[in-house]
């Protein structure tokens, strides 16, 4: 069914494209939000990805690869947007949780704050890799496809992203201790 919609959209059928995107919209936005950590920027990335995908849909050779192609495009929109945003002063404000929260016994408020700060210390590419793995559920081979890199490189970058996240959390804990704060 989706293949038919993709092919119709490739022939210029805008209604088919909207039908194709509607069930994917929430997931795309959620991925963008996890990477960019900002609702407005995530909406911008989502909209750009939607329009760019329409504009360049005829370049998709295999309609069955539409979802992988679309996610790859979204990730790159996020990366490009983050590059533009680097000029701005980093905003380390902790985002309020307005979606379902994990059980309290798994993540406390302090954990969430620390994860947020640590995550924001990472490069956008490392964030994207972690989001693709932990939120989207991609295996390293799928991350490789999404980012256009060899599978071995994806594995090593995932490992490095985990290591960087751990280091960011450690740095955050040290800062908290230096300021007389709490280290959970």
């Amino acid at each position: 069914m989706d293949r038919d919609l993709v092919e119709a959209a490739q022939r210029g059928d805008q209604e088919a494209y909207v039908d194709l995107m509607r069930p994917r919209a929430d997931r795309l936005f959620a991925i963008a939000h996890r990477i960019l950590r900002d609702i407005d920027r995530a909406e911008d990335a989502f909209q750009d990805a939607l329009v760019i995908a329409w504009r360049d849909l005829r370049a998709l050779r295999d309609p069955d690869r539409f979802d992988a192609w679309l996610r790859r495009l979204l990730v790159n929109v996020c990366l490009e947007q983050a590059t533009r945003e680097r000029r701005r002063i980093a905003n380390l404000r902790v985002m309020p949780v307005d979606g379902p929260a994990a059980p309290d016994d798994l993540l406390g408020v302090g954990d969430r704050d620390q994860l947020e700060r640590g995550f924001r210390r990472l490069s956008t590419e490392k964030r994207a890799i972690l989001v693709l793995h932990h939120f989207v559920g991609y295996a390293p081979a799928e991350i490789a496809e999404a980012l256009g890199i060899p599978p071995g490189t994806a594995r090593s970058r995932l490992h490095n992203a985990h290591r960087a996240m751990r280091a960011a959390l450690e740095a955050d804990a040290r800062s908290a201790e230096a300021l007389g704060g709490r280290s959970a």
């Binding site: 929430d26 936005f29 996890r34 609702i39 979606g99 932990h134 959390l169 280290s183």
Partner: peptide, 21 residues
Amino acid sequence: MTPERDIERLLDAWLAEGPQQ
């Protein structure tokens, strides 16, 4: 939070939070 905790499990849980729509 200590770095010894399972970072992957924390990321799974934390990234599942947040806006979904």
